[in-house]
Simulated assay, not measured.
Amino acid sequence: MSARVKPIRFAAMLAAAVSAAACLSCDILRNQSFSVVGWTPGTGRFESGGDLSVSVSFSGEPDRVSVENAFSMTGNGAAVAGTFSWVGATLFFKPCIALRGNTDFRVTVGAGAMNPRGVSLEDVLEGRFSTRPEDGRPSVLSTIPERGGMLAGVLDSVSVSFSEQVDSASFRGCMSFSPAISGVWRLDPDGETAVFLPLAPWVWATEYRLIVSGDLADASGNRMGESASLRFTVGNDAIPPSVTGAQALDKSGSIVSSLVPDDTADGSIDENTGWEAEWRVGLAFSETVSMRSLGG
C-alpha cells in the first residue's frame, strides 16, 4: 500500500511547484512598472508653437485605447482638440489648429492609462510649456497724482505707469473710477503709460479711487494677478468761489459802470438802469474758476 502512495505524493508536489512557479511568473509580470519615460516638447518656453511636436513615450508597450482616453491637452485652460498616432510605445498628438503664441499649455496623461496586462501608469504625467516670450507679471510703478495726492484742476488728467508694455486691446476694460466719471484712456506709444482724459469736470473737493484690475495683462498675456488702487482728491480747497463784483462792459471791453448787487435781505429790489443793448457783463470772482463750469 505504501509503495503506491509515494508516486502520488511526488506528482502532487510537482503540480504544486509548477502552479507556484506560474503564479510567481504572473506576479513578476504584473509587478513590472509602466511609466512615462519622456515627452515633447518638454518643459520650457518656445518662441513659436507652430513647429512644436507633442508626444509621450512609455517604458513598455501601452494599451493604446486607455492611454488615449487618459490623455488631455489645454491651452490657457481651454481644451486643445487633435488626433493621435503611434510609433511603437510613443504616442504622437497633432492639434487640429496650430498652437497659438502667448499661451500656456498643459499636457496630461492620467492614472487611467495602462499596459496590456492591466498595470496602471506609475506616475501621472503633468507636463507644462509656454509660447509666451516671458512670464513676468506687469505691475503699477507710479501714478500722477501720487497715492493720496491731489489733482489741481477739475479737467486735469490722471496717468498710470507700468513696469512693461501692457495689452493695448484690453487695458481700458481693467481701469475704473469710483465715483464714476466719463472720459477716455490713451496709451503712450511705448505702451507703458496709460493716461485718462476726463470728458466732464472732476467734482471739486471730492475723493476719487482708481482701480486697476488684476486681470490687466502685458503684451505677452501675463496678468497682474492682484489689483492695484489709487486714492486722490480734486483740489484742497473746500470753500466755493463767490462773485465779488460785476461791471457793464462796452463793445471794446472797457468798463462803463459797476453794477449794484441786490441785497435780498432789505426787502427791496435794486435796479441797474441805463443798460445799452450792446453792453456785456463782466464778473469778478473770489478765486480762479473753471470757464467750463460757467456754461451751466
Score class of each variant (00 low, 15 high):
215 D>H: 12
216 L>G: 03
217 A>M: 03
217 A>P: 08
217 A>Q: 09
217 A>D: 04
218 D>M: 03
219 A>M: 05
219 A>G: 10
220 S>D: 11
220 S>V: 10
222 N>S: 12
224 M>F: 02
226 E>L: 07
226 E>N: 11
227 S>Q: 10
228 A>H: 13
228 A>T: 05
229 S>M: 14
230 L>D: 03
230 L>P: 02
231 R>E: 05
231 R>M: 14
231 R>S: 00
232 F>C: 00
233 T>S: 15
233 T>W: 13
234 V>L: 00
234 V>Y: 07
235 G>K: 05
236 N>C: 09
236 N>H: 12
236 N>E: 07
237 D>L: 06
237 D>K: 14
238 A>D: 00
240 P>E: 01
241 P>A: 03
243 V>R: 01
248 A>D: 00
251 K>S: 11
251 K>V: 15
253 G>T: 02
253 G>P: 07
254 S>V: 02
255 I>C: 10
257 S>P: 09
258 S>Q: 15
258 S>H: 14
260 V>N: 12
260 V>M: 12
261 P>N: 03
261 P>L: 03
265 A>M: 14
266 D>V: 02
268 S>Y: 14
269 I>V: 11
272 N>Y: 12
274 G>P: 01
274 G>T: 05
275 W>Q: 10
277 A>E: 00
277 A>R: 13
279 W>R: 01
280 R>W: 07
281 V>R: 07
283 L>T: 04
286 S>A: 01
286 S>C: 08
287 E>F: 08
288 T>E: 10
288 T>V: 14
289 V>S: 04
290 S>Y: 04
291 M>W: 12
